[in-house]
Every structure is written in structure tokens, then in C-alpha cells.
Amino acid sequence: MSTSEILFWFLSVLALFSAIMVLVSKNPIHSVLWLIVVFFAISGHYLLLNAQFLAIVNIIVYAGAIMVLFLFVIMLMNLNKETEPSRNIWMKFSGVISGGLLLWIFVSATRSAGEIVGKTAMIKEGSIGLIENLGKVLFTQYALPFEISSVLFLSAMVGAVVIGKKQ
């Protein structure tokens, strides 16, 4: 086993374990902290798949901005273990059944897709994900979606302010 394989397995186990802990922990603050661990593990995966810029963006936007917003809201509402609503056992059961069946279908579809089975690539090789290459494509080929996303942000900001303000 080489270094990047060990890293891949470590990151995968870390991501899955922390994703389960997000749902298992009763305290919402612990859920948010475990979710930040998931995002760091996913950023490690991006680094292995040589999307270096994306790894940094993932950490800054998710762990830095979105999760801090979640933490603020949870602390503002004073949520803790006591305010966590009790979960119905049948709801859990149906969640396991439907999620498990769909997982099964997805896994067998992946295993039977002839084009992607056995496809390998050099992990952590190449520099296509560096910001220089990304910037060139972003401002030529993807200029229109880039501008449209700024309009999306403006409307989301206006919407959040209008919804959030006191009547």
C-alpha cells in the first residue's frame, strides 16, 4: 500500500464515521462539529483527485462560512439535547429500509456499469486543478454561468433579508 492509498482509506473511513456521528449525536452543536470533520475529509479527497483550488474553496465556504452560520443560529435559539424532538421508531425503521434499498440499487448499478469498473487514474498527479488553469476556463467558457451566479447571490441576499426581518 502506498501513501496515497493509505490516505484514501483513512479519509474515506473518517468521512463515513463522522457522517454517521452527525446523525447519531443528539446535541445539534456536536452535529455541526462532526459535519465540519466530514468537510475536511472531503477536502482531502479533492486534494487526492488533484482539485486543489476546490479543496480550499470547500474548506473556506463550508467549514468557514456555512457551518459558522449554523452554529450561530443554534446558539441563538439555545438548542440542546433537551429541545431535540423525540424520534419515532417507525420513522427510523422506514428511513433505514428506504435508504438501504436505494443504496443497494446504486451500489449494484455501479458494480455493473462496464465502462467505469476497473477505471483507474494516477491519484495526486497533474496540475489541472490549479487556480491558473481554472481561472482561464472560468472567465472564457464559464463566464455566463459565473455572472448568473452573482445574480443568484443578489436575489438570495435580498430574499434572506426580506424573510428574516421583523414584520
Partner: peptide, 28 residues
């Protein structure tokens, strides 16, 4: 150089997706 099959990464992401889906169904 090391090589990791594409299916391994797809399994990880599939498992993450359905952990998230289970959470969406069960948490209130």
C-alpha cells in the same frame, strides 16, 4: 504510482449520500 479504482470513490460518495438521506428522513 498508486492507483485507486473509480468504484471505490463512488462507493464512498454513495454511502455519504444515503447517510444524508437517512438523516433527512429521521430527524425532525
Amino acid at each position: 504510482m498508486s492507483e485507486i479504482p473509480l468504484t471505490h470513490i463512488l462507493f464512498v460518495s454513495t454511502a455519504l449520500f444515503f447517510i444524508g438521506m437517512y438523516g433527512l428522513f429521521t430527524r425532525r
